[in-house]
Design a protein around this nucleic acid. Structure first.
Lengths: 326, 326
DNA sequence: TTGAAAGCGCTAACAA
DNA sequence: TTGTTAGCGCTTTCAA
């Protein structure tokens, strides 16, 4: 691959002039610029970003580390991050930690080693990974899951309040035995949503089940709950992938959505209105989370001394048929 | 951030020894290795990947450039690529070209400049971008959409045959006026699926409509088709995002799925069995496409002289209720 | 087994 | 306005 010296030789100038010409430094003779451009073109010259970044001590690349590429919530975040980053001239690379602390760790190492300009991350747990980044001076913004207070920027949704509101909605709709299907212990969003459910339930009897944040998990949890003595007549589901399994379990049991068992699920999904009755959801502003995270990250890259901020966005309960008896 | 010289100074050895110790070169005195390790640990040393890669002229990073992160088909490919890459010690960074040739171009530039080891791409068109990569000697594997014959590795699905089979299935199920909703002209998969539809239709009257590969596109196309003189009584839909719009339009018109209008859509989606009747789909082996692409890419990175291959995987028609009158 | 030194490709002082 | 030169942090000969 052609290097800057090849171009310099061909254009009959020094490498410094090539660098200046190609980077649009104004002090270069237009005639030379043209010659350099031509030479670069002829050689198919592509600047070596590694060398450039090594020299400049910076990269125009952001890393986005999320826990599940197949979850529409996270891909919507990705678009938000990307749109903002692009307009600022940054590229975004997406890394899938797959809810595994080890993979997350590996991607953090990569981010550190490749010296990305900043990282947006949905941390699998509160400490280890993010602190590595912070400790090395890499700007970080956490999304979806919190950091230890004051350690870094974060943009979150008040899951607990949303879960509480959703549960209250179910109660208000006349369901008597509201249950909750949530994710694994330690996954902060799963814990928060369960807590919100409990908040709303007060002294009523709890019917809760944890499982992995996937369809199979939702299905298993639902079956288990249904097999109990006084099975739930409504369910708060903490995640849209789980919701698929929940709905399948319900159907397998011959239970009618809404009429027999009310359901509210976290995350608005494109297919929510296609099922019958349509699914009531807690819609998180995923795109906006990503966009805001990117804005904060860019601001911090520009000025590392900014105080850490915590932004909380509101989720919105979208009532549809699945949470009504009628 | 600590550099290798900092570590060397602290351990009282040369930078060469640090490099050797940390990279597990066997000729280093175990005592020294321990000292170096300790020093690195104390300083929180993270090797600078930029410098290392610059020197080694290689990176253990693959780029995956896809046209829509929000499409489950592509995210499934991403997992396939990632799983294979990980076991070979490579990291994968995902870039979202968003069906835009310009964004694709920008990510290709980034890939080139960052000197990634290889690229898996779903090319927006056949030439420009991929040829830049090939021209600079970067190993490339195309997925989902073809390259010009013989230019590089590709792993595809025979969309045309699958579309034909799906259309024939609809015809065999007794639908008389089968229509087709497909993506924009020039998007290869959209064209292929339309071609397959036409293959099956033979001399029957065509009812086809193009729109963007999104729900809104599917909805608009369906409305337009339905507004015609002899509206279709069945639809082949070329993409799962469009399918959402198609189903919505049908419902808005009061048409019952299957009974009034039969539907087969490309790509198996998690919610296919949740709607009533469940959706008949053409399931593409997305994960396997990604995994195979990664295998081919790795092979080509190891040996650049390999002849270009073209792998074609089969799609599978999964018959469910939406394509039957009963 | 270890160290000295060159150099990957680029940019930025400094000189001219 | 242009060129010369140093050096970003690392790996890898070549000597010792």
């Amino acid at each position: 691959m052609a290097t800057i010296s090849d171009v310099a030789r061909r254009a009959g100038v020094s490498t410094a002039t090539v660098s200046r010409a190609l980077n649009g430094v104004s002090t270069v003779d237009p005639a030379l610029v043209a010659r350099v451009r031509a030479a670069a073109e002829e050689l198919g010259y592509q600047p070596n970003g590694l060398a450039r970044n090594l020299r400049r001590q910076e990269t125009a690349v952001l890393a986005l580390i999320i826990s599940d590429v197949e979850n529409p919530f996270f891909t919507a975040i990705a678009r938000g991050v990307e749109d903002v980053a692009q307009t600022a001239g940054y590229s975004v690379v997406l890394c899938n930690s797959d809810e595994s602390a080890e993979k997350e760790r590996r991607y953090i190492d990569v981010a550190l080693q490749e010296r990305v300009a900043g990282v947006v991350i949905s941390p699998t747990d509160e400490w280890a990974g993010v602190e590595m980044l912070l400790g090395r001076g890499t700007p970080v913004v956490a999304v979806d899951r919190p950091l230890r207070a004051g350690t870094g920027d974060q943009v979150l949704v008040d899951s607990r309040a949303a879960a509480r509101a959703a549960t209250e909605h179910l109660l208000a709709a006349g369901y008597q035995r509201v249950g909750c299907v949530t994710g694994p212990e330690g996954v902060r969003t799963a814990d928060d949503r369960l807590a919100g459910y409990r908040d709303a339930l007060g002294r009523r009897k709890r019917r809760e089940r944890r499982a992995e944040y996937r369809a199979a998990g939702g299905e298993a949890a639902t079956r288990a709950l249904l097999a109990g003595a006084e099975p739930p007549d409504a369910l708060l589901v903490a995640n849209s992938a789980m919701a698929i399994g929940v709905l399948e379990a319900l159907r397998a049991e011959g239970l009618r959505l809404g009429r027999d068992v009310g359901v509210v699920a976290f995350d608005d999904v494109p297919w929510a209105t296609l099922i019958d009755p349509p699914l009531t959801v807690v819609a998180q502003p995923a795109y906006e989370i990503g966009a805001e995270a990117a804005r904060l990250l860019l601001a911090r890259i520009a000025d590392g001394s900014l105080p850490p901020t915590a932004t909380t966005l509101e989720a919105q309960l979208i009532e549809r048929g699945s949470s009504h008896r009628a």
